[in-house]
Design a binder for these strands. Structure first.
Lengths: 219, 219
DNA sequence: ATACATATTTAGGCTTACCTAATTATTTTT
DNA sequence: AAAAATAATTAGGTAAGCCTAAATATGTAT
């Protein structure tokens, strides 16, 4: 049985590993979980005993197969709930994270499978993040940052690399939504800002900071 | 801020008060929450300090207005989730309690109001228990036990007074559902068993134990 | 290679929510 | 009303998860 705290650690270790690769440091975990580093050291030692992670003293941690499976289960639950909150309850994409953080810890495999079915087996959550299946497998996709595109590229906006409220609300305000077609009209060499045409209609200037966090697939 | 443990105590105190009236004893709470009586004494003292309950040493506890409001909020959440689980996810009425026990602690007023709206503002849960509104108010109804009916009475089955899996599954097996019309054809004086006609079709013999736990309204 | 800065761990504590065993109150039976 | 039974409380403890302060590693710059 994994506790709420363990679930949160596993999820965060998974995320940090995805982002930075290799071992996850005590301080990174502490910062992201908003828990004191000393407490983290303490806790990961116990998790290592339970074989949820493997821990190299002063080096960091990695997930064991068992730990990864649990982490993916939590991520699956979280993303399914987010889909439900947005599609069925009418929440906005920037409003669902905190609620899903709670719902993801509800323990019932049957519930999650029924929810998945009810939602029509969605492949991604409202931010474009992929939803692992019940066995923890992802479908593969080939999205990349819009920043890696060139002038003339025509792509589809499929996800965000930054989940902050302010970024999500900026996109909403700018009327940029998942699924939109983006045509890179020009790139300003000086500041890497992008001039894009959205859905063949509106033209918009996006800063490098914004462009970096838009994930796209080539059409 | 009320903790998960406090929410469970408040809910249980509310339920026991509904059932037995007056003060709720330490032992009743201990038994129903499956917590040692000594721990209960300890905990209710702290809850009394927080003004969630009023506590008379060795006598028992009652809810304060604040405590009752919170208890009703939890009960509201629980019952709304049960409606969702049955109506939208396809669970059976005997399968939803444990899941709702977890979902009821998810903290977001906005979530519950959206859920209520999504469900079409239901008045009762799948067992016929009334759902308090956001302010903790119930609509009034005049249901009574079928045991208090007489031969010739025609009533509607609107709720159960017993929520055990075995009772709920017995009713399912006997094809007796909320909303059914029950006609009391005869009552056996010796054992108070009832011969009833269901929806003007099937005739069935119900033991006193069953009859006692069927809640009905006179049509 | 040494000194400094940063990251990590160790040691000692705290709070919440539980427990058991012993004691004291209350209720029931005789 | 006293004895016996039951219920409630007190006292002392535990585990999970957190904390701060101090000690020790590790990494970086000179």
């Amino acid at each position: 049985m994994t506790s709420l705290a363990e679930e949160n650690y596993l999820k965060e270790i998974y995320k940090l590993h995805e982002k930075n690769g290799a071992m996850v440091s005590t301080s990174a975990l502490a910062e992201n979980l908003k828990i004191n580093a000393a407490s983290v050291t303490d806790f990961i030692k116990k998790m290592a005993v339970k074989k949820l992670i493997s821990y190299k003293k002063s080096k960091g941690v990695t997930l064991t197969d068992q730990g990864r499976t649990i982490a993916l289960t939590i991520i699956r639950r979280h993303r399914l709930w987010e889909v439900w909150l947005v599609n069925n309850l009418g929440f906005k994409w920037h409003e669902v994270h905190e609620i899903a953080e709670q719902l993801e810890h509800v323990m019932s495999d049957e519930l999650i499978e029924q929810l998945d079915k009810h939602l029509g087996y969605p492949k991604a959550d409202p931010h474009g993040d992929l939803i692992p299946d019940a066995k923890g497998r992802f479908i593969k996709t080939s999205s990349k940052s819009l920043l890696d595109c060139e002038e003339g590229d025509k792509v589809k906006f499929t996800g965000v690399a930054e989940h902050s409220n302010s970024f999500l609300q900026y996109l909403t305000k700018s009327n940029i939504k998942l699924g939109d077609e983006l045509l890179v009209e020009s790139i300003e060499e000086f500041d890497k800002s992008f001039q894009v045409k959205i859905n063949r209609k509106e033209r918009r200037l996006l800063s490098k900071e914004v462009v970096k966090n838009l994930l796209v697939v080539v059409e």
